[in-house]
Computed example of a mutant assay.
Amino acid sequence: MQRGLNNMKKRGFGYGCIFYGTGYGNGFPDISRSIAELDTKGHINIYVGATEVGQGAKTILGQIAAEALDVPVEIVTLIHEDTSITPDAGTAAASRQTYNTGNAVKISAEELKKEIIVVAKGLLNEDHLEISNGVIRSNTSDKTLTLKDIAEASGGGFLRKDGIFQANTTEMDPETGQGNPYWPYTINAYAVEVEVDTTTGIVDIIRAACSQDVGRAINPSLVEGQIDGGFAMGLGYAIFEDINLDKGRIKHNRFTNYLIPTALDMPEIEKIIVEDPESTGPFGAKGIGEPVMIAAAPAILNAIYDAVGVRLTEIPVTPEKLLKALKKREG
């Protein structure tokens, strides 16, 4: 488009789209485990070896457990990051915790719910029971029990149930390229408008939009936060972060010369959450941790090309590289 604001600054639009397989993939065993427990106070404890690295696992997994048990999320405690008491849930990598470990948590919570109902049937002498907002109710009478009642009836012991989930993945055939390496896949698209100063080579991001397929948004605020963080990473990848390798030595080895984006470099991002529930995911959800970063850099580079007509194939697009490309085009 190359819309000129003046002789020095040009604006352009760029788009980037991806589909991304989450989980370890390609036949590598991808297993998560969880334990759901009713403690003596009538509270729910979820033991899971999922690591919180800022992706919101602690919040999401607690929500999944509360939904599966139909209890208030306030009485659910996630016990994690302690290998002496928690089962292995795999790494906080490959955008897999919401899908994989979320499924394991859901399974353990559902098994615990069944056990709670069994105990309640014996106490109430009723067959048609359900849990609603943490209270066990009869469908045929006005009889009710609390979770603490169930815990006390268990003799002060804990009711515990395990949940195990293994992702569906097969190794690709090296001869035919066929297989089922990932499940599920997530999809997104970025749109970016940039302003390029052709005298300094500086690229400013004016605005951006992200349309992200999430399966189902268990926590929309966390999805939007992931998009903000992912775009910031993609922005750094595209135009800032240059380690400057010289014969194997990192020359930009401190933040005075290894530049990263700050809040001042971030535009407002229009966030479009697309919900197409994943049938195998916990309540339809799937992971988006890495996907929200991947398409940002291609969109930015496409916008630079649209603005100044120079196609750059090496990142980051530093001012020096961009000026060099512009001079080369001018002969």
Rank of each mutant, 00 (worst) to 15 (best):
I239Y: 02
N244L: 12
P298H: 05
D276T: 14
T318A: 06
P282R: 04
K324R: 14
D276A: 10
I294Q: 10
P291K: 05
I272G: 09
E270H: 01
G331R: 03
L264D: 09
V308A: 10
H252L: 04
K328Q: 15
P319E: 02
K247S: 15
R249Y: 14
E270D: 12
P261M: 06
E320W: 02
V274Y: 06
V308P: 00
F283T: 06
E268C: 02
E314C: 06
A263L: 12
A285R: 01
F240R: 00
P267W: 06
I269S: 07
T262D: 07
P319A: 02
D242H: 07
A325E: 07
H252Q: 00
I239A: 07
G281D: 11
P261Q: 12
S279C: 11
N244H: 11
P319F: 11
E320R: 05
N253C: 13
R254E: 15
K247P: 01
F240S: 09
I315L: 09
G289Q: 06
S279L: 08
I300A: 07
G281T: 06
I260N: 01
V292L: 04
T313Y: 09
L326V: 13
D246E: 14
T318G: 12
E290C: 00
E241D: 04
F255T: 13
L264E: 14
E320C: 00
N257S: 15
V292Y: 02
K247V: 12
K328G: 14
I250Y: 07
N253M: 06
T280I: 00
D306N: 15
